[in-house]
């Protein structure tokens, strides 16, 4: 079947079997391999992208369902060399370890901040409920998203919380 969609501002099209998952169309047809295939059972969220502005799991969507849709993948976050605030946040606050979950985390984080400019820690944690980090790096991921929220609000982000007080340690 023929599908056409807009991906990161670019008109793309291709011929796919109905069973082709959107994530495979993105990775294999479009060669946009930033979007990851993780659990393949819609749990891990590594394949999270935006379809018509909403965060969805591209491993649980058929490419044919996305015909006519407007899609944004992790490659669509940065503006040239200028990192998106969530990418800068993950860089500055060590929001990634192995990096496998990162594309999905970034897309979920960006989606959250588009809807809620000042999320609480609780709201951030619920917003990434559909994204698993098997390095269990959630603490710094939350701090990274808080950093990005501050930047997007035009505020100075809070200093990193790993500054240790070594006073009294011999």
């Amino acid at each position: 079947m023929h599908v056409a969609m807009t991906v990161n501002g670019r008109e793309v099209s291709g011929d796919v079997e109905p069973r082709t998952l959107l994530v495979h169309f993105i990775r294999e047809n479009l060669r946009l391999t930033g979007t990851h295939v993780g659990c393949e059972t819609s749990y891990c969220g590594a394949c999270t992208i935006q379809v018509d502005g909403a965060a969805v799991k591209s491993c649980t969507m058929l490419a044919v369902q996305a015909d006519g849709a407007t899609i944004r993948t992790v490659e669509g976050l940065a503006d040239g060399d200028q990192l998106h605030a969530v990418q800068e946040g993950f860089w500055e606050r060590h929001g990634l370890q192995c990096g496998f979950c990162t594309p999905g985390m970034l897309m979920s984080a960006a989606s959250l901040l588009e809807q809620n400019a000042s999320p609480s820690e609780d709201e951030i944690r619920h917003a990434i409920e559909g994204n698993l980090c098997r390095c269990t790096g959630y603490h710094n991921i939350v701090r990274s998203i808080e950093y990005a929220a501050s930047k997007l609000r035009g505020e100075e982000p809070a200093p990193p919380d790993w500054t240790m007080d070594f006073e009294g340690v011999s």
Binding site: S42, G45, A54, K57, T60, M61, S108, L112, G130
Partner: peptide
């Protein structure tokens, strides 16, 4: 129900 991404679809 589900998570954010599931609720969006």
């Amino acid at each position: 129900t589900g998570d954010v991404q599931v609720r969006n679809r």
